[in-house]
Design a protein around this nucleic acid. Structure first.
Length: 194
DNA sequence: AGGTCATCTCACC
DNA sequence: GGTGAGATGACCT
């Protein structure tokens, strides 16, 4: 399966997008998004998943166009334009296939509530749980921990109810992933995490 | 059936 | 204002 790489030189980050492409209807589907702190980090990821290969913009013409737009959108986002990546990317006729990625009502509910947040806003695990009619705030974290579409599904906007940052990218505590969460919030205009 | 959490609350210092 | 234990619910094996 092909993976498309976007270099965010401003922050020294690599965004990899694993996707599939169906020719009859020219539909792109995004399977996974990963954020890498370095080239080595990305290469380790490539090695671990032996079913993927880097895709340059030299395939199908329509695919090239979609990938090019995708790159522009992501770069705009990191430039600080407050884009709703989920709807913007869907407008490219890209299928994100949430039904396939979130199979239970609970997990789908978590995602749907989360997708209503706007850049610059934050919410918390407890509030999300309440909105789908349960107290299972820890389970909300479990779902977000496995978010296959970071950035697009804005799990970085979920912080703790007491105002602390909470985890990101499967990690808690001070590490590059939580620093990345701070960076994303800062890019969206949320200050207070320095 | 039992283990794992990206949490929360409350009772202690 | 920091720490630790217990509650807790959905998920995974």
């Amino acid at each position: 399966m092909p993976v498309y790489l976007i270099n965010i030189s401003k922050y020294n980050l690599l965004i990899s997008i694993k996707f599939s492409w169906r020719t009859p209807d020219d539909k792109m589907e995004i399977q996974e998004v990963h954020i890498h702190e370095s080239k080595k980090d990305f290469q380790d990821y490539l090695k671990k998943k032996n079913d993927i290969e880097i895709s340059d913009e030299n395939g199908h013409e329509k695919l090239n166009l979609t990938l090019k737009k995708l790159r522009e959108i992501i770069i705009d986002y990191f430039e600080g334009k407050k884009l709703d990546l989920y709807s913007t990317i869907q407008n490219l006729n890209v299928n994100l296939n949430l039904q396939e990625k979130f199979k239970t009502n609970f997990s789908l509910g978590v995602i749907q509530v989360l997708l209503k947040t706007r850049p610059g806003e934050t919410t918390d695990y407890y509030t999300i749980a309440k909105k789908i009619g349960t107290n299972a705030y820890r389970a909300v974290g479990n779902i977000l921990r496995n978010n296959p579409l970071p950035l697009i599904i804005p799990c970085h906007r979920v912080i703790k109810k007491n105002g602390n940052l909470g985890g990101f990218g499967g990690a808690i505590g001070d590490c590059w992933k939580t620093r990345l969460k701070k960076l994303l919030l800062k890019i969206e205009g949320v200050n207070g995490f320095s």
